[in-house]
Write a protein that binds this DNA or RNA. Structure first.
Lengths: 153, 153
DNA sequence: TGACAATAGGTGTTGCAACACTCATATTAC
DNA sequence: GTAATATGAGTGTTGCAACACCTATTGTCA
């Protein structure tokens, strides 16, 4: 675009790269919203649900705060208060490590584990219903291209 | 999963549908974060940038609040204060319609138009650099599958 | 025409997210 | 062994987002 165009409404058609970005954002928002409609009635945000799944995968030893943050999908600079809220809801419990007293291990409570196990089926059903009009080959292609799309970052 | 498993850490491997959801969320977060690093130094959130592009596309007449909200990528129940902040930053201006006095038309200021035009090149360069290791055919396939993935919702 | 519903916009409040900063503990260098 | 650095966790503050609710204007229909 030339300097003379800077104060006009003229702008070029979106490039293929931009189409990818917009389509990606729209699809993520659509699927995210639908999942929220399952999680919010249970008092969970998507981030909190991800923490439950992360901690379930970690087993009884739990994980320290930074390990939880690293495994989260979205960058989350305030894991402390996220875990505070989940501790207040009796979903997780924390205990300071004796090995390294800087570390605080967080693990699921029985209530948290039951909740995330209960949600497995409902969430899987939702994802299936949202995507069952695509073939397995298409889904595998989609995952492959999505993974490739972020491989540079 | 059987009832007996509800309080265990046993859970099945993620289905293909779940892999799509996770990969989609991760890729969106990665690309979103990179774009934020371009926009935040200019004082913009991604949503505000989208509003600028929406209003540029609308031309001099502008759009009313609900029309802006409908065109946004993510559901946004508080467009009023979003536009308040952009008006305070002198990016948009508002005027109540005389035809239907319920409507308030929002349009870009000269500053807002210049800003969004200036960002075009930088944003496009970013998107290209993030995705230039994928072929055009792959990008077209990605857009097609992403569009298909949200077609049911 | 006058009551009532529908639409558009705005507001009050609450809770969460992001930033910078501090404190405690552990590791490293000398 | 002590000082300096690095790492992990938590806190104070600010701003934005989401929810419910309210007001003004328009449209609908008896």
């Amino acid at each position: 675009m030339s300097t003379a165009d800077r104060r006009t409404n003229k702008h070029s058609a979106p490039s293929l790269h931009q189409q990818v970005f917009v389509s990606l954002a729209r699809t993520e928002a659509t699927l995210h919203d639908a999942l929220d409609r399952v999680l919010v009635p249970r008092g969970l945000s998507l981030t909190q649900y991800n923490v439950l799944r992360i901690l379930r995968g970690a087993g009884a030893e739990g994980l320290c705060r930074n390990e939880v943050g690293e495994r989260l999908i979205t960058r989350m600079p305030d894991v402390t208060r996220l875990l505070d809220r989940m501790e207040a809801a009796d979903l997780v419990t924390r205990s300071r490590s004796t090995d390294d007293r800087r570390l605080v291990n967080t693990m699921l409570t029985k209530k948290g584990l039951t909740l995330v196990n209960d949600l497995d089926h409902e969430v899987d059903q939702l994802h299936r219903s949202q995507l069952d009009h695509l073939s397995a080959a298409d889904l595998r292609t989609l995952v492959r291209l999505l993974d490739a799309a972020r491989s540079k970052s």
